[in-house]
Simulated scan of single mutants.
Amino acid sequence: MKPVFYLAAAVMITVALALLLVPLIRQGRRQGRPRGIFVLALLVAFALPLGAVGLYLLIGTPVVLNGVEKQPEAISIEQAVAELQTHLQTEPKDAQGWLLLAQTYATMHKPAAARDAYDHVLSLQADNTTAMVGWAETDSIAREDHRIEGRSLELLQRAVQLEPDNQRGLWLLGISQFQHDRYAEAAATWRKLQPLLDPDSTVAKAVAEQIAAADARAGSTPATPQAPAADGPALQVQITLAPTLKDQVKAGETLFVYARAEQGPPMPLAVARLDAAALPATVTLTDAMGMTPQLKLSSAARVFVGARISRSGQAIAQSGDLEGDAGVVDVGSKAPIKIEIDKVH
């Protein structure tokens, strides 16, 4: 796109927001509401799309906003938030105020605080789909494992039931299904999202890639699940079990082989799940085994490669699990990576 296009778009958005919000601000001031609340509304109107990019990159949402520079803020956002908090102390039933506070905390990368504010919205408006999706999204960011389950999953299911064309809701619901190995359901959910997108957009392409990955995991395509892309990374991992621990492995336990970024979020960039009885085993980790389109093997230069036998079948490490690792390796490594599971968590 030409710079002139972005400038013209920015001018049109600014004029539209001014025509809409300035009269509301004047009316609100006449009613005695604090100035900071309305200034904060303006800040969020411009800053929320920018904050969404960072949030989506972290949990795996397609991104279409590129090259947008954050505009300088006329006043301190912390001051505006403080005024809004003061207002909500005197008007605790102001659902729109709580929603604005939640969205602001999200743009400030304070997911736990945003989740609490969304809770207030839901206590006042139980069917507010924006708050439902926002709660699930910020909860997943606040969690160390970034999984979407429990109340988050229930809220997303309710949100897309009430609003079938909720794009963020459909995307996050598909991520949850993918995280829980329900690959066919994830692909079906993302296919509902596809018609709502511009087919030539970056978002549509990212969704199509993730559908293909889910189909491959579900076994609904003839492709070999572990076949790497011609130009993508492929880490061959050879896993063995220390003789001293063989008696501790029980039938039905799960073997996870994973790679995560040397620096960054703990979410795996690639993960394979096998029956622990398959040991010794060889696994090839590729981009197709990532949990989200953005967080995949090729997004990092160096990765920590590990293996764990989970007694519970859950990906989160628990006391008593057996584990081992190969340390940090280059993501482009072609030599076999050897791991001996020789420790008890």
Rank of each mutant, 00 (worst) to 15 (best):
L162E: 03
R217E: 13
E78R: 04
K192D: 03
Q89N: 10
A204F: 02
A212D: 13
A117E: 06
T14C: 06
G32F: 06
R29H: 14
E163C: 09
R30W: 11
W171K: 06
G134Y: 04
T221I: 14
A216V: 04
M1D: 08
P265I: 01
Q85N: 12
E149Q: 14
D231K: 07
L17I: 07
T240M: 01
L155D: 08
A259Q: 11
S201K: 02
I337F: 12
L40G: 03
V207N: 01
L43W: 06
V283H: 07
P265N: 01
N166F: 03
W171H: 03
A307Q: 04
A301L: 07
M1R: 10
E73L: 14
A52Y: 02
I25M: 05
R168K: 13
A300I: 07
Q194C: 04
P164L: 02
A95N: 08
P3A: 13
M289F: 09
L269S: 08
Q157W: 04
V53P: 02
V249N: 11
V305A: 03
K334N: 15
L269F: 05
K296P: 00
T104A: 10
K338E: 15
D165Y: 04
A315P: 01
H146P: 00
E209N: 11
A214V: 02
T86I: 01
A74N: 05
G264L: 09
Q161R: 11
A102C: 06
I175D: 08
A136S: 09
A45R: 02
L279V: 12
P266I: 08
